[in-house]
Amino acid sequence: MAHKDDLGRAGEQRARHYLLECGYRILDHNWRCSLGEIDIVAQRGTALAFIEVKTRSSLDFGHPFEAITEPKKQRLWRLAHEWVKQHPDAARGRSLRVHAIGITGRDPWAGTLEHLEDVR
């Protein structure tokens, strides 16, 4: 279990680094409330992105994006709205987006990173 947790933390760290390189500003990460957790909240331009990061050591159990099911998407949107309620100044005048970042590889820093914008 510890290996899986380490892999996930490393994947989230790489995702934050990638987002910064792409011009995003990280506003929050691993934000929790009673509804669950948002991996990353980032802003670019007038958009706020609520980003789910899925890291897998291989594709043996499917692509990382396959874990983002319809119920997961709905929960991410509920979490996004809860974050906005708790951070109204940061969200004022911004559009909301849900993104996913999938990282595949035994070493998240060397693995394949894919960024799916506007998960619907």
Score class of each variant (00 low, 15 high):
56 R>Y: 07
72 K>R: 10
67 A>G: 11
45 G>M: 06
5 D>K: 10
26 I>G: 09
26 I>N: 09
65 F>I: 06
100 A>S: 09
74 Q>Y: 10
59 L>P: 04
114 E>R: 12
13 Q>A: 14
11 G>S: 06
44 R>L: 11
106 R>L: 03
29 H>W: 13
60 D>N: 15
46 T>L: 10
12 E>Y: 04
114 E>Q: 15
76 L>Y: 08
62 G>C: 00
77 W>R: 15
49 A>W: 05
1 M>T: 11
102 G>Y: 04
2 A>Y: 02
55 T>C: 05
31 W>Y: 10
9 R>A: 14
30 N>Y: 00
114 E>Y: 00
55 T>L: 10
73 K>R: 15
67 A>E: 08
16 R>W: 01
108 P>Q: 04
104 T>G: 04
55 T>K: 02
34 S>E: 14
114 E>H: 06
92 R>Y: 09
21 E>I: 01
28 D>V: 00
63 H>G: 11
23 G>H: 04
73 K>N: 00
32 R>M: 01
9 R>T: 06
39 D>S: 09
33 C>G: 06
29 H>Q: 12
46 T>C: 11
33 C>V: 11
36 G>I: 07
48 L>F: 03
33 C>T: 10
16 R>S: 11
81 H>F: 14
107 D>W: 05
48 L>M: 08
43 Q>S: 12
105 G>Q: 00
72 K>D: 03
11 G>L: 01
67 A>H: 05
37 E>V: 12
14 R>A: 00
43 Q>A: 12
67 A>D: 12
80 A>M: 04
77 W>P: 01
46 T>Y: 04
91 A>W: 09
72 K>S: 07
49 A>Y: 05
13 Q>L: 10
45 G>S: 11
113 L>D: 00
19 L>C: 04
18 Y>I: 11
82 E>W: 05
21 E>S: 13
26 I>A: 10
64 P>I: 02
79 L>C: 01
111 G>W: 03
94 R>Y: 04
107 D>K: 13
7 L>N: 07
92 R>S: 15
55 T>H: 05
52 E>H: 08
61 F>C: 08
30 N>V: 07
94 R>G: 02
64 P>A: 08
25 R>S: 12
86 Q>T: 10
116 L>W: 13
61 F>S: 10
61 F>Y: 14
107 D>I: 07
112 T>D: 06
1 M>V: 13
27 L>M: 09
18 Y>G: 01
55 T>W: 06
31 W>Q: 11
10 A>W: 05
109 W>L: 07
13 Q>T: 14
53 V>T: 05
25 R>M: 06
27 L>D: 09
31 W>I: 05
56 R>I: 01
106 R>F: 01
70 E>K: 13
37 E>C: 06
108 P>E: 03
53 V>E: 05
41 V>E: 00
75 R>E: 13
26 I>W: 05
97 R>H: 14
7 L>C: 03
64 P>T: 05
44 R>A: 07
62 G>V: 01
92 R>K: 15
5 D>W: 08
10 A>E: 15
72 K>T: 08
64 P>V: 02
71 P>W: 01
92 R>L: 14
111 G>D: 02
52 E>N: 15
86 Q>H: 12
